[in-house]
Design a protein around this nucleic acid. Structure first.
Lengths: 251, 251
DNA sequence: CGGGCACTTGAAGATAATCAATGCCGGTGG
DNA sequence: CCACCGGCATTGATTATCTTCAAGTGCCCG
């Protein structure tokens, strides 16, 4: 499977170097001087299969992770056994920042397909506080962005109807793929309908129906998890407002 | 109004010292060595009246704030003019961390009653990266906690019915007041019904009705914004589950 | 004392959840 | 290679919850 070139990625070894990484431009580490695998103690792990947990809610924080390839979902488990998906992770995403609060993971993260991650041990982070302010600042910046994203999601859940939510979600995925250099209008969703439903605070049946409706309206071409968006503009229009305001303004 | 004692808080001057602060134990600064007002460039401002904005969405980040007394709300404005309350702030809270993402405030923060805050200029934070890792770590820790809180809220909005949300909200306030050394079972809500409704993603009318219902069921004694909770245990039972699950488990 | 705003209350309607059942795909084993 | 099995997805009918609309009350502030 592998060629004999020197910069070939070899799984299962520490040989996976940042210099070889296609995500250089997107990685949170890109502004950090001595950031490369091996230099800081950050390591790239071997691939994990679908279903594998990077960590589980309640576990002690041992490392943060950066997705190198593949995708994952994070979810919170409630005492009554329900699961709430709170985030999907694509390549370049930093995972586990919420655990920096109390030192314990408050959510679980699970691979949705084969995934490779760079592992970012806790002591590296602690060291960074003293030796590498730039790295530390980068993590803080990421945390700020994550909070902002949560706020956007709160707005979505609180003020938008079901169709607006799904449209917004698809546009979100579209942008994410575009950002990674893939097509913004044709992609495969890595997650199950159930995950989308949970993420958008809807029932699976509702999500399923919406996909069907969108397809009938020509907003979407759907085949199982494969998506094509004929017109981003039209989809954006749906995301903005399908009908009337859901809640009146306050102030 | 003021006595002649040396440690009296004098508004409008830099004389407000951490040593005088009743929040020492709760303040994010409490683990930082040289953390006192004046030493780090952090300053305690004069009181702001109800309605005053600490900052507005879109403004450049200039400072973080710690609430010293009073309370505030943060909200996100959507393009279509709606406002979504995302957080209430009580004494000890650090405000503005989300802006560390892009350097621009992604939400607005407004006083709900007379409020005093300690101002935490951006350059102090930048300096902290190099000179005061402990302070920096403390901010990061706070950011992690904030993300965790957002997740909890997502669970609340996604999986809980209206009555469970209000009960959870009241318990949240109860805990916050208890943490500040006030009564956990009798307090005044600083926010309007409209704000509660927005925060919980409900219509004002629904919130109003729920207060009435709770009172009729003996779960609550309500008089305008004054709240008394006869039994925290009973309220907790309501928060856990009023009826049946709203969404089925996934995964 | 008057006006406005916050809050409450009631009735009707819409949106999305729930229940129930079937179809489809992928994987597994005979 | 084909048939079966199980999870994932779709579809339909019904119901519940919460919103919306509309109106009225009381409190606070000027």
């Amino acid at each position: 499977m592998q060629t004999q070139e020197s910069n070939v990625v070899r799984f299962g070894q520490a040989a996976l170097r940042c210099a070889d990484c296609r995500l250089q431009r997107l990685c949170i580490m890109n502004t950090v001087a001595s950031h490369c695998v091996g230099e800081t103690g950050i390591k790239c792990g071997r691939p994990s299969p679908r279903g594998h947990h990077l960590f589980r809610q309640g576990e002690r924080l041992q490392a943060l992770y950066i997705v190198r390839s593949g995708s994952a979902k994070s979810y919170v488990s409630t005492p009554d056994g329900l699961e709430q998906v709170i985030r999907f992770h694509l390549p370049g995403d930093l995972i586990g920042v919420d655990a920096l609060g109390e030192g314990t993971h408050t959510s679980s993260t699970q691979a949705m397909e084969m995934i490779t991650v760079c592992r970012f041990p806790l002591d590296v982070i602690d060291d960074a506080a003293h030796h590498d302010p730039a790295l530390y600042a980068q993590i803080l910046k990421h945390a700020g962005r994550e909070i902002t994203k949560e706020h956007a999601r709160a707005v979505l859940l609180a003020q938008r109807g079901a169709d607006e939510r799904l449209a917004a979600f698809l546009l979100q995925m579209s942008e994410a793929y575009a950002h990674l250099g893939y097509s913004a209008v044709a992609f495969n969703l890595p997650m199950a309908r159930q995950d989308i439903a949970s993420y958008l605070a809807l029932a699976v049946e509702t999500v399923s129906r919406l996909f069907t409706n969108f397809q009938h309206e020509g907003l979407l071409e759907v085949d199982r998890r494969s998506i094509r968006i004929p017109s981003l503009e039209r989809l954006r229009a749906v995301a903005r407002a399908s009908g009337k305001p859901l809640l009146t303004a306050n102030g």
